[in-house]
């Protein structure tokens, strides 16, 4: 396995917040190119903290993160942030420009895409999420599902190697949820999805990693992991009422 460069490699990653709370206590994770992996865990398990390490927004007190063989360091930050596209949980945190098109253009301009190519990037990204008709609207005037898709477009426009999604299904109506799932499956990109939504993880990710108290406690095919009711119960997770996989 090691002879192929991993899309993402996390080695013994530790991180403590300034108040002393130890959010990551030695995380190990390897994601191969093209894989879709769900990161599951209860509230406060360290999932979002892990996400913020993948693009160098936070830096571990110990351990290492590599993206496609490039270690996350201060001098590689720009390259890392282009390679790792993070879609945050609340689209209102992500969409801050006055129009959809300007927001989608924000990333490519920061990453030095030639100005002549920016409109094409914006068009392609918006068309990939089916939002090209809304390019000149304010993100504020879009529905929750539309905002989520635009947030995804803002990251796709940067052409990332790996897509990291933080709770992509939260606050979405069932139809928007399904549309987003179909969209994500159609992208064919390496994907890491942080979620509480276990059926969504099963639908999108063949493999799941369970994190609790800052360490990986299980790493299995999603179906096997979700069928282990005792394991889920031990880490404050459970399938929604009416679901059974065992």
């Amino acid at each position: 396995m090691d002879d192929v460069t991993a899309a993402l490699l996390v080695k013994d990653l530790e991180f403590s917040y300034p108040d002393g709370h130890r959010a990551l206590a030695g995380v190990d994770l390897r994601v191969e190119p093209g894989e879709r992996v769900a990161v599951l865990g209860p509230n406060g398990a360290g999932k979002t903290t892990l996400v913020l390490h993948l693009n160098g927004v936070l830096t571990g007190t110990r351990g290492q993160v590599e993206v496609a063989g490039v270690p996350v360091r201060k001098r590689t930050l720009k390259e890392i942030r282009r390679r790792v596209g993070v879609v945050f949980q609340d689209p209102d945190d992500q969409l801050f420009m006055p129009t959809v098109a300007e927001d989608v253009a924000f990333g490519p301009r920061n990453f030095g895409v030639p100005e002549a190519d920016v409109p094409a990037r914006v068009r392609e990204a918006l068309s990939a999420v089916g939002m090209e008709a809304h390019a000149d609207r304010s993100p504020m005037h879009l529905s929750g599902g539309q905002r989520r898709r635009v947030a995804l477009a803002t990251v796709l426009a940067c052409d990332p190697d790996i897509l990291v999604l933080d709770e992509p299904s939260s606050n979405l109506e069932p139809l928007a949820r399904r549309e987003l799932a179909e969209l994500l499956l159609g992208l064919g990109r390496t994907m890491l999805m942080v979620s509480h939504d276990l059926p969504y993880a099963l639908q999108l990710c063949p493999r799941s990693v369970l994190i609790d108290r800052g360490v990986v406690v299980a790493d299995r095919p999603t179906r096997d992991l979700l069928a282990d009711r005792d394991l889920l119960a031990a880490h404050r997770l459970e399938l929604p009422w009416g679901f059974r996989l065992d």
């Binding site: 942030r81 209102d92 992500q94 990453f111 803002t154």
Partner: peptide, 23 residues
């Protein structure tokens, strides 16, 4: 708090402290 989250999301898309100006 939202300001902090917005800042993180901007950093994740390569923000370096200056808003890119359209030509």
């Amino acid at each position: 708090e939202r300001g902090e989250r917005v800042h993180l999301a901007m950093l994740a898309r390569g923000w370096t402290g200056a808003m890119p100006v359209p030509p």
